[in-house]
Simulated assay, not measured.
Amino acid sequence: MAAAAASENIQKQASSLFSQLKYEHLVAGISGGVLSTMVLHPLDLIKIRFQVNDGNQARPTYNGLIHACRSIVTQRGYRGLYQGVIPNVWGAGASWGFYFFFYNAIKTYMQADTSTPLGAGHHMLAAAQSGVMTLFITNPIWVVKTRLCLQYDGIDKKLDTGHSGRRYRGMLDALYKIYRYEGLRGLYKGLVPGLFGVSHGALQFMAYEELKKSYNSYMNLPSNGQLGALEYITFAALSKMFAVLTTYPYQVVRSRLQDQHAQYQGVINTIRITHRGEGWKGFYKGLMPNLLRVTPACCITFVVYEKISHALLPSKG
């Protein structure tokens, strides 16, 4: 009897949680993620190339952001700055869409009274749970994006023996070859540091929600009311910079694990080799182009998300 009651209670809770899932949040999140990625992909490409440059590989080296842009354009034209953009658009759209989709459902499920905002701890918990679910869905796309961004003219042609599967013609070809030659494990490379990276989203959403809550309280506005674009931009930028500066090293470790030109034996091995060869500075490679990309990208994503979600959910205001 007790087991049956417990099972029925779990089913009711699951049903209650699923009832909070709303497609409007998915659509709004996808829209924001796709738009910001299309605009700012070149900075993401350069960030990844900086992150994996350990000084020991026969790959291009850059003396800063401007030099990197010029080198890529000289080699491959302006199209070179959009290498890997297709999986990035898919990944960013899916990630932001599912993140907002799960996050708002979990947050609403936790909230007994929708007029009373949750505390910082609940915001972090909701963001962490949604981050884990989103990561398991999107990790293969991020592996493909990293691989495509790290294809270099010259060294990759030497690798294209017909057997290595390390030269990719596009997103679908990369997915096929990674699965064929490396199995499911290859598509989930970088998952462990990605799970640590869930703290990034948790800190960002916690800071964003707390900034909104404090502002609404100060201005005597309803907790779920719609704000102006300037407020969303300010809160998104501050929360993103806080999260990036706090958690950036995991991104370097993740990129190096996903790099087809390097052979690291897991997270600990990557950390040891990076620290031994480059010191702590090695864990912050690519930080500047990352901040230049993610801060405006986050602002675009959050403004588009907030505006579209409020338009699709008019009763929310």
Rank of each mutant, 00 (worst) to 15 (best):
Q151R: 12
N220K: 14
T161Y: 00
L118T: 09
Y232W: 08
T138M: 02
I141T: 15
A207C: 00
M124E: 03
G228P: 11
L191C: 04
F235P: 03
T114A: 05
Q129M: 15
P117S: 13
K157S: 11
P140R: 12
Q151C: 13
R167G: 00
A229Q: 07
F136Y: 15
A128W: 10
I233M: 13
Q226F: 01
Y232H: 10
K212L: 15
H163M: 06
S223Q: 11
R166Q: 12
L211I: 12
N224P: 00
G225C: 12
S130V: 09
G162L: 12
T134Y: 03
T161S: 14
K189V: 04
R180Q: 08
Y188L: 01
A207Q: 13
V192T: 10
V198L: 07
Q226Y: 00
Y179H: 05
H122R: 15
F136V: 10
P117E: 10
V198I: 04
P117Q: 12
L150P: 06
F235Q: 01
V192R: 07
R147F: 07
K213Q: 10
C149P: 01
G194C: 03
G154Y: 08
I233K: 01
F205C: 08
L118P: 02
D156W: 07
Q129S: 13
N139W: 05
G201A: 02
V132G: 11
L191I: 06
S164R: 14
G194S: 08
A127K: 10
A126I: 12
R167M: 06
Y208H: 15
G154W: 00
L125I: 15
W142Q: 06
Y176W: 10
E231V: 06
L195S: 04
G225E: 06
L191K: 00
L191A: 04
Y152D: 07
F136Q: 04
N220I: 06
L118N: 12
G201M: 05
E182W: 11
L148N: 09
E209K: 09
E210T: 09
D160H: 01
Y208P: 05
D153I: 10
T116C: 13
R166M: 14
G201F: 03
L230M: 11
G121H: 05
H163F: 10
Y181T: 13
G170C: 09
I141A: 14
C149K: 02
L195E: 10
N216D: 04
Y215D: 03
G154R: 00
E231L: 03
R167Y: 11
S130A: 15
E231Q: 07
F235Y: 07
D173L: 06
K158F: 05
I155V: 10
V143P: 12
L150I: 08
L203C: 13
F235D: 02
S217D: 14
S115N: 14
L148S: 12
